[in-house]
Computed example of a mutant assay.
Amino acid sequence: MTTNSKTEQLTQAGQQIEHDSFAIVDSEVGSHTYQQDQWQIVRRMIHATADFEFNGLTEFSDNAVEVGVRAILAGAPIVADVEMICVGLSQPRLAHFGIKPHQFISDSDVIEAARKVNSTRAVQAMCKANQQGLLDGGIVAVGNAPTALLEVLRMIREENLKPALIVGMPVGFVSAAESKDLLSTLKNTPWIITRGRKGGSTLVVAALHALLSLAESQQKSG
């Protein structure tokens, strides 16, 4: 049992249920090839969805978890494609690290810009985040909109953008799998993805909560 206090459930009963759930996942998952820190993330994703296919669908670039934990400990901003991710993240857990989540998809100027250039709100929201200096060195969290991920990839390629980490898990049928395949080709930007059509904000939140837990463990041991 972990001794984390900031990134746990707030009640003993809640903590016990979560730990029991993790134990069930461990007992039923069968074999996997993930490193220990990677498994903390995949296990929480399975716990959040009751879908064991994420054992295998989830992939990590080299040192993605280490870099993500370091970014959290440094208080890096999190930029999400949709409000659901920001709402799903535990505010007390984020506050412990001085992290603020951001999303701009429903801002009036974002909507107007998308209409003006016949783009998507997700694209223009990422443009706004970049204009505010939130993407360079930040954690990009995409669970819904492939176009948001594709725009960030364009910025990396054409504008030398350097996010600390991209959690790229858009769900759906149009460009979702393809955007993640493209992300997986990056060599100098750490990433965590789910292959294929499966993904979603719930998975991104689970992955980020796992990173927060790993960061607290490192904080306590350091």
Rank of each mutant, 00 (worst) to 15 (best):
L182G: 00
Q12K: 15
P77T: 13
G199L: 04
A114C: 10
D181I: 12
H102M: 04
I99S: 03
E8I: 11
L135P: 10
A125E: 11
F97M: 05
A48M: 04
W39C: 04
D81E: 08
D81F: 05
V171D: 05
H96F: 15
G222Y: 05
M45S: 00
I17F: 14
R44M: 06
W191K: 07
R157K: 14
C127A: 14
A125R: 09
K6W: 09
S61I: 00
L183M: 12
Q218W: 09
L161Q: 07
G56W: 03
K180Y: 09
P92I: 07
T120M: 12
E112M: 06
A207K: 01
E158K: 14
T58C: 02
N63W: 02
T194H: 06
A177V: 09
I78H: 01
G200E: 09
I78Q: 01
D109A: 11
P77H: 12
L165R: 10
N188A: 04
A80S: 12
A80C: 12
E66Y: 06
N130H: 15
R195M: 05
A129K: 09
N130A: 13
R195I: 02
L214S: 03
Q36T: 07
E216V: 13
L183S: 08
I139S: 08
G98K: 08
Q36A: 13
F97Q: 10
A114I: 12
T189D: 10
Y34N: 07
A215P: 05
N4I: 04
S221W: 06
M1T: 13
A145F: 06
G14V: 07
E159S: 14
N160D: 15
A113W: 11
T120L: 13
Y34S: 09
K220S: 11
A64I: 03
E151H: 12
G30E: 09
V171R: 08
L10H: 10
K128M: 12
Q132K: 14
L182R: 02
P190M: 06
H209A: 00
V152R: 06
L212N: 02
S184A: 15
A177K: 15
E18L: 12
Y34W: 07
G56Q: 03
A71Q: 06
G68T: 00
T147I: 11
S106R: 14
A114P: 10
